[in-house]
Design a protein around this nucleic acid. Structure first.
Lengths: 204, 204
DNA sequence: CGGCGCGATGAACGGCCGTTCATACTCCTG
DNA sequence: CAGGAGTATGAACGGCCGTTCATCGCGCCG
């Protein structure tokens, strides 16, 4: 009954999207499956025709955005040469664009993954570590080849700290970037690319 | 009855501390007042002799750490001269030390303030904005006086982006800093001071 | 055109939520 | 030694939580 014009398929996707919005706004534990159901005009029980549990929806959301992030990162790397300077700038820029384009997805992934059951959480932690390792690798490579400089910072943690500074800059761009007031996303992405080079102290 | 050796005073503080630990680990909405009570060996009802509500405990936690942050920041500024370069380095370094020293407090403040009721949340948002404004101010001052350079970045958002890059680096240090494996907190704080100067492109 | 199966319903499950309250204990003050 | 203030107890409150299930309607396929 009710609205029979309901699109047969796509319900799973609509739930996914509502989860994105609600988890983003209220957090995973702050969101109720009844709220989820209201948002997609469904009864709470109907949710379970599409996801076996609330946790599984959270995992679907986080896993997908990690897939997309991996894709962006590896495609960016594929489209740029061997030069660590170009690699770092392209990576920081592209990843910034990604985070501006997907603020809900990335916020939920970064904030709420701790609520995943152990198995899934560990899988996510592993994927996050791989992204960190990619940036560290590029930084180390660039240092070895004389394009970046961390020695003068006088700390063994310098490369890690620098890569985390870059990653945090990129990952949290959506906390301040305002499509209404800020310059274009592309310009901000380019800006972050250049700031990443500053952090690595490349002469550009 | 039970343990009569219970220290008469200090219960409010012990609840505050347990809230810190639990909110940090499970998030505000993921923490139960029964868990809180268990952590301090009390009955749920007894919590309400010390805080009128769960929300008020969250606010007490967040408000206190903001007080401490304000103190650190203004004392740091007071202890350093007029030079924007020295100011930025000192601010980034001191604030990094603060976040390493108080990982629970700062994580809860930054992540869970959204669960505060409107009045309190707005007060917190105002305090956060003031911190951001302080960094922007130092950056602009340094640029005006020729010590920092953002013009070459070619974006009107450059100063804001740079200040957010510095702030995010500082505020999230506890996500990777590991007292067991990392160098000392003081060394990491100094490192962040120097990285902040890189971001502002000071010649040091 | 009959039947099958997907997907929605709405009621219900046991359990936990934040909070309140009458009561009682204990310690400090006078 | 009396009494009041401060604080803990344990039971209870109404309400909401995530999830299950019997039931049923609708649209597609043979």
């Amino acid at each position: 009954m009710a609205v029979n014009v309901r699109s047969r398929t796509g319900t799973r996707e609509r739930i996914h999207d509502a989860g994105l919005t609600l988890f983003n706004e209220r957090g995973y534990t702050g969101t109720t499956v009844r709220e989820l159901a209201d948002a997609v005009d469904l009864t709470p029980g109907a949710i379970y025709n599409h996801y076996p549990s609330k946790e599984s929806l959270l995992f679907a959301i986080i896993d997908r955005v990690h897939d997309e992030a991996d894709t962006i990162l590896s495609e960016t790397l594929r489209g740029v040469g061997n030069d660590p300077v170009a690699q770092l700038e392209a990576l920081a820029s592209a990843f910034t664009g990604f985070h501006i384009a997907r603020p809900r997805e990335t916020r939920v992934a970064n904030r709420d993954y701790i609520y995943l059951p152990a198995r899934e959480r560990e899988s996510v932690v592993r994927r996050r570590r791989r992204v960190r390792a990619l940036f560290v690798e590029v930084l180390r490579d660039g240092e070895r080849r004389g394009h970046f400089c961390f020695a003068e910072l006088g700390s063994e943690d310098a490369v890690q700290a620098a890569s985390m500074a870059i990653l945090n800059m990129v990952v949290l761009v959506a906390e301040w970037f305002d499509p209404a007031r800020s310059r274009s996303a592309a310009e901000t992405a380019a800006l972050h690319g250049r700031l990443a080079l500053r952090i690595a102290r490349s002469g550009r």
